[in-house]
């Protein structure tokens, strides 16, 4: 190294005599004492600075960065939380609104059903009453027909008695009565219609 520097210096000296001549000092000549001093001072400085300056500052900066990161993380978390809560509330509101709608709809359906039931029931009752009335009428009619027939038979027997009283074996009379009776029956049926 030293020889290299020497030769460089000689080269420089021959190239620029103006610099070399008035300066008896050789700028490129190494001073080993100074080199040792430099090494010692720099290494000692490096140890001291690493321990007392770079370490604490780095640690402090990292702590601050960590704190900032934490704060940002917390803020983000809070925001997400509040957004979630807001969404939940909104969902709950929507749900309750739906519920109310559903309840109203159900009530309406139930009311409609009740009304329909009532109407149906009324109709059924009416029909029932009508049927019963009709049946009663029919019954009454049948009974009336039977009674009428008994009455007619009685009348006929009565009339026959009267005829018999007067004309005991008149075959012509008997036929007359019979035809009369059949006409009465036919007329009674047509009258009931």
């Amino acid at each position: 190294m030293r020889n290299l520097l020497r030769s460089l210096v000689l080269l420089a000296a021959s190239a620029t005599p103006a610099l070399a001549e008035p300066a008896p000092k050789n700028l490129l000549d190494p001073n080993y004492g100074l080199m040792v001093w430099t090494l010692v001072i720099f290494v000692a400085l490096l140890i001291v600075l690493t321990k007392f300056a770079f370490g604490p500052i780095t640690k402090s900066v990292e702590a601050r960065e960590q704190a900032l990161e934490d704060a940002i993380g917390a803020a983000k978390r809070d925001r997400e939380d509040s957004a979630r809560v807001l969404a939940e509330h909104r969902a709950a509101l929507d749900a309750s609104r739906d519920e109310a709608q559903k309840i109203i709809a159900e009530a309406r359906v139930a009311g409609d059903r009740v009304r329909a039931d009532l109407v149906e029931q009324a109709h059924a009752e009416q029909a029932n009453m009508l049927a019963r009335a009709r049946q009663e009428i029919e019954t009454e009619k049948t009974r009336a027909i039977a009674e009428l027939r008994r009455e007619a038979v009685d009348l006929a027997i009565l009339g026959a008695g009267k005829v018999i009283e007067k004309n005991l074996d008149d075959a012509g009379n008997r036929q007359l009565v019979e035809s009369f009776l059949s006409s009465v029956t036919a007329s009674a049926v047509s009258a009931s219609r």
Binding site: V48, L49, F52, K59
Partner: peptide, 12 residues
Amino acid sequence: CVVLIGGARSHV
């Protein structure tokens, strides 16, 4: 030393 350690102290 003075500048950096002083700076570090103040920083911390």
